[in-house]
Write a protein that binds this DNA or RNA. Sequence first.
RNA 1: GGGGUGUUAGCUCAGUCGGCUAGAGCGCUUGCUCGACACGCAAGAGGUCGUAGGUUCGAUUCCUACACACCCCACCA
Length: 882
Amino acid sequence: MAELPKAYDPAEVEDDLYRDWEQAGLFHAEPDDPGEPFSIVIPPPNVTGSLHIGHALTNAVEDAMIRHAKMHGKNAVWVPGTDHAGIATQNVVERQLEEEGLTRHDLGREAFLERVWEWREESGGVILTQLRKLGCALDWEREAFTFDEPRSRAVREVFVGLHEQGLIYRGYRLINWCPRCATALSDIEVDHEEVDGEMAHFVYPYADRDGGVEVATTRAETMLGDTAIAVHPDDERYTEMVGRTVTHPFFDRELPIIADEHVDPEFGTGAVKITPAHDPNDYDIGERHDLEVIDILTDDAVVNDNGGPFAGMDRFEARRAVKEALDEKGLLREVEAHTHQVGHCSRCGTVIEPRLSEQWFVEVRPLADKAIAAVHDGRTRLIPKRYTKPFLEWLENLHDWCISRQIWWGHRIPAWYCPDGHVTVARDDPDECAECGKGELTQDEDVLDTWFSSQLWPFTVFGWEAPGDTTPELETWYPTSILETGYDINTFWVSRMLMIGLWFLDEVPFEIVWNHGMVRDAEGKKMSKSFGNVIDPLDFIERYGADALRFALFQHCSPGQDVPLAEEWVEGGRRFANKLWNATRFALGTLDDTKPGGLPDADDLTLEDRWILSRLAAVRERVDGAYERYEWSIIAQSLYHFAWDELADWYLEAAKVRLYGDDETARQTARQVLAYVLERLLRLMHPVMPFLTEALWRALTGEPGGERSLMATEWPSEAGRSDEDAERDFAVIEDLVTQLRKFRSQNDVAPSKRFDVRLVTERAELLDRQRELVTSLAGLSELEFVDAVADDAGVAKIVFGAGEAYVELAGLIDVEAELARLEKELGKAQDDLERSQGKLANDAFVENAPDEVVQQERDRSSELERVIREVQEQMGALRELA
RNA sequence: GGGGUGUUAGCUCAGUCGGCUAGAGCGCUUGCUCGACACGCAAGAGGUCGUAGGUUCGAUUCCUACACACCCCACCA
């Protein structure tokens, strides 16, 4: 094998390795492949997107799961694909048009859609290419798109099916309207944010007497659509007013005062203005009392003709104008500051307008009930468990789902209207009205919520297009083994997949929902463009390597916990990769032609061999356990600790005695053990750092790659060998060596300077056998075992767990030089102390400086006093010696 | 308003069933070109485990209350 370069250069190997795996078919699986089925479907990223750090986390984790499963001999498949992401994608293309000074309406529906498809063809696949950079073992032959032909057929089938079952209906309802996107949204596409606003109080004058009813509102302009005043039925203040009317200040309209349980008498004046067209509660009240509904806004939230003198004003402009007009009429009472929650469009941030509108809905209750049952009886489990409760509560309180969107990019609603207004919902485009037989049908202009198609993902990717469909893929891989995703889309996506999967396939789409956290910056803050703390994973991959990024993510990733990420962590990942690279380089330089294989005869194993094999068994067990619980941080940290601290720092150093010695048998034993341990470690690490381990494994084993890749090897389920005796004995060595090194460091004995040690120890027999090891690791010349050593100023006594070590100081320490050094140290400390005490003696300082600063100075003084005492003691001892 | 999470070293986090001297990375200090690695080696400093109680032989770990921080959900104008 060619010699490895001195440092690991990820860019040099990553792309080639990926291509090699792919060409060898290691990413691909067929239903009839051997092994227990294991499947994951990728949370399809938006075609618009480019890889962000959240994708990197999800996909690194899923990749590790897939590689782990494959190494366990499972028939593992990971299906890639993208989401057409209705509004998000449409917005992107609309923004492009804007730069050309165009709107989608200038192009018209067809040309616009062509344009979006074009754009998707050009740049829509970028994100998938980026996933390759991360190392993802995705089965590219199975790539799917939520808006491709097979998926579209399934969407249509599901829509028509639910409609036939009466679970999809069209109706006038109050929905969330985004005036910028000009479309309806579902409840969860609205983000509530606290906003500082105003609560305006004003009076509706009674129609038939003096005075009036005071009401309060944060959205004054809605009063243009008010059609009643409501009070609580038991509110005595208003009892006699119920049934009377007030007059509208701007219109020739009388509003009845009605009684409704919904009103909270404690809040405000206890009287509420009712705007059925623009407030969900008011709408319900309007239904109960059969109130008139007056819509006062246009699609883009401008006051319409119903707003009389305010028509043409933007809603916020109208808000001010209405208040002014009320004030002029002497009806405005007070305007108080009021912070409240305001809904914003989750796609563009525009303030949402509740609005009455005709839309398509899914009646979710029956579907949700099935999902609830599945979670209750454990057919689907959420990890961590704590997400279960909010998940269930959400399902229990679910309102019907508004699925129609007034945009163009998406699955067109398969409903047609005849001139008489009859509705035909059909699997195939109809020629005539199902009700009256008339032709000249026009299709509904709207498209479906993007989540309506992505909810079908876990089975449409396996070929499901209609109820009853079965394919080998479905039979093998559905339900999927695990659904891994951020907790932020449990409601958007996970819940809907669960509901619809149960409804149409009568089976949960996944047994486990494993939630990772959100990637944060180094301070634990949310990453956002406005903060400027966004990390670009591709940039990091380029600079540090995919494995370094992956490792940094894994290190902090445990169920449900947010993952802090900073450049230093990724740098740490690269350092670790480099460490392993160099450990392997060392091995290659010393192994000669020895390839990894089995272990030598147990009789030939030395203490350090038995120890590292035992540690290997331990880390393997720990990693296996952590995999069962998906505790990535434990997996990463255990591997790190084993590879760096135990293998590199201790075992390699210990093995050098034999590897560089001249006992051929011993050398061969060391080589075999080293090759064995390293090879097993690379396997254990492969799911976490696939590129690095693959490159090193090929160098180590001489295997050619392709089908004979590390990726295709078996998980080392039996690696290592537990050995308590070896662990206990090696701990004695570690302890002694560490204490001796400490002595060396504290006394400034040069690392190259060897010295003699006499030991008084209960483990003389062990240490005598391991004399060479100890001497080598601690840099000793002689090791002598004695029964006792008399107290003597010239001898240092070093205590360790199994006894004491004694070192002659004479000749070891350069007394003069050491005294000079200490003299200098003492001088500096005394100067510092003098200055510090001077400060403290200064009353002005003590009086005026902040308490903590004064305290700091006091602490400093006493610390300096302590240092001075210690240095003086040391100098005393040294003088005695000289 | 409801629900949840967290509070451990300067920073970011581990800490499995309550039990040896509470760990890691980064940062910091000191010394080292020791035949893999200065992307390194060795040694070190640094923690009243948020506060107050309780259970226990023993609590960072379990319970209660409180404080602070963060997150999610929610149609009180």
